[in-house]
Design a protein around this nucleic acid. Sequence first.
DNA 1: ATGGCTGCTTCGAGCAGA
Length: 262
Amino acid sequence: MSFTLATWNINSVRLREGLVARLMTEEAPDVLCLQECKSPVEKIPLEQFHALGYRHMVARGQKGYNGVAIFSKMAIEEVDAQDFASLGHARHIAGRLENGVTVHNFYVPAGGDKPDREINEKFGQKLDYLSEMRDYFNASKPEKAILVGDLNIAPREDDVWDHKKLLKIVSHTPVEVEALAETQAAGDWVDVTRADVPEGKLYSWWSYRAKDWDTADKGRRLDHIWATSDIASSAHSSCVIRAVRGWEQPSDHAPVFATFDL
DNA sequence: ATGGCTGCTTCGAGCAGA
């Protein structure tokens, strides 16, 4: 069987309920993973999503910040929710789909402004979060699994609009890129998006602060789809739906898609 | 360019995003 999965930092699922419904209608992924829902789980609007065929959800939420949810057309059973770095944040949820695939949905901490844990506690928390992700996958090697989310790191030179200008900007510093690589190696995760789209600039986030985000195109690829090697080679049709960044009152992130033939 | 913009909290300035 084949199924399509998408990941999208929605930046408030309640404010952008209509955009989520539009993506569900126009693109209809079988599984839609959201980050930054900014809502307690009990206040996530479900009725419209349910009517569109997304009758299953697993989620973690909190008021105002963070929050992750997996909406699915097929049944999904919650299997885990970690609080790495003991931040007390809703940044991870994992579920097992009825096809046997485990889906991890992450919202990795942004890390603040200065890439120095001595003067910026948030940067230290980001590195600690990634270390604990690494340890978690080292302790229990994932199989038949997909990891998605806003990982808040653009690892490759062609994942950012200007590699040299961003080397000291949080999200593209060498120390973060190395930490992400260790986490990836721990789970034997394949970067599905880059396996599928190996060449060229590719972004999933554009700042709200640019006058004209589309023309300036100062983007970064912060949102990722990884899979374990046992299913990664079945992935195809990877893409970022850039046009979504131009929708009315958009999120600053665009959704990333992949299709798996199992 | 220590700015530019946006959302949430619970009504409005401050925090967070990255």
